[in-house]
Amino acid sequence: MNCLDFRRAYLTDPYNLEAEQVTHVRECDACARYANKQTAADRRLEAALRIPVPKELGPNIIFERSMRGRRSLRVFAMAAGVMLTVAATFGIALYGVGSGQDFGEEFKGEFIAHMAHDPIHMQSASQLTGQQAGASLQQVALEMGIDVGANIDNVIAAKRCDLDGHQAAHFVVEEEGVRATAFLLPNESLEQSEWMDNESGQHGMLIPTKGGVIAVFCPERQMLVRVGEQLQNSVKWSSS
């Protein structure tokens, strides 16, 4: 190894020297001096990168924040209940007040983000079969008062998830190496069907039904439409 190669390697990754580099620095005084000088400079660089961290940052704040969100929803529900009672007393007709919340733009992104972060999407079907056994789609759906029928094939994973305060049966279907992901959200409402085109590599459909919302995502449109229609025809909600 020559000195130029050593110095380049040292500037690239001083933390993981290869055997050849270690041998060179032991044998070459000039490069040994260079390495010492760069190490000292690197320490100053590291000190600069390790900026102070805000004291209030930490897991406790995360926990408080997640609970704060749920309290806000309960306050909203109480206020809505009071409003309805007052309206009924005065015989006022309220239009457009439902039991669920319509999804805004932000929540559509929540599906994509959830898929991106949920570890079941980072594993192969063979890994999932072993680890996710015990929670079949029927079981998960039943717990949530949803009847998915008997015709949903090739389900490789199913679980109950919290999507920013909204409960969903989340499952993955795989056919010939292509995965479609579906979320069944009971007691949610949507004014009309919506498409999402190529959000982070996924196409998506949000399907309103009486009793809940079905969301399906897939990188292939044909499979997306097929799974979406299948669910729309077979899912029954206990509230409807």
Binding site: L57, P59, I61, I62, F63, S66, H117, D118, P119, C161
Partner: peptide, 19 residues
């Protein structure tokens, strides 16, 4: 940066049982 970390840790909280 604080928002990003908060959001990341919130997701970690939700997915903790899978990690």
């Amino acid at each position: 940066a604080e928002d990003l970390v908060q959001e990341t840790l919130l997701r970690a909280w939700r997915f903790m049982d899978n990690l």
